[in-house]
Amino acid sequence: MTSRQHIRTAALTGLAPAVWGSTYLVTTELLPPDRPLLATTLRALPGGLVLLALGRKLPTGVWWWRAPVLGVLNIGAFNFLLFLAAYRLPGGIAAMIMSAQPMFVVILAAMFLGDRIAARHALACAMGAGGVALLVLRGTASLDTFGVLAAVGGALCMALGITLTKRWGRPAGVGLLTFTGWQLTAGGLVLLPFWLTLEDLPDGLTGSNVIGFAHLITLGAVLSYIVWFRGIERLPAVAVSFLGLGSPVVATLLGYFVKDERLSALQLVGMAVILVAVVLGQRPPPARGPAPADAMTAAPGPARRDLREPHPTTAGDTT
Rank of each mutant, 00 (worst) to 15 (best):
L205G: 08
L189A: 02
L253K: 06
P248T: 13
G55V: 08
T318M: 14
L37G: 07
A251Q: 05
Y87R: 14
P68N: 11
T2G: 13
M158P: 01
P32R: 13
V72P: 00
V222G: 04
L82G: 10
I162V: 15
D115I: 00
A77Y: 06
L219K: 03
M158F: 15
P285G: 08
A237E: 04
V152F: 12
A150Q: 09
V19H: 06
P90D: 14
T178S: 03
T314A: 12
M103Y: 13
V69N: 10
L89G: 07
F146S: 15
G188D: 02
G154D: 10
A172S: 12
A141K: 03
G220Q: 01
A126D: 01
T28L: 10
A77Q: 09
V258K: 07
K166T: 11
I93P: 01
G128A: 02
G47W: 04
V174I: 13
G207P: 05
L196S: 00
G139H: 03
I274M: 10
G114N: 00
G147S: 09
W63I: 12
P33R: 14
A239S: 10
G187K: 02
K166M: 14
I162R: 03
I162Y: 05
L149M: 15
V227N: 08
T297W: 02
I107M: 15
I7T: 10
Q101G: 11
P236H: 05
L160C: 13
P286K: 13
E309A: 13
P310W: 07
G91N: 15
V278I: 15
L266K: 14
A303W: 11
L280S: 04
G161W: 03
G61W: 09
A277Q: 03
P17Y: 07
R283I: 12
A124T: 00
A119L: 09
A44Y: 01
P300H: 06
R305N: 02
P310K: 09
G61K: 12
P102W: 14
T180F: 00
P17N: 07
G21A: 08
L198I: 04
A265G: 15
D260W: 07
F78V: 09
M96G: 04
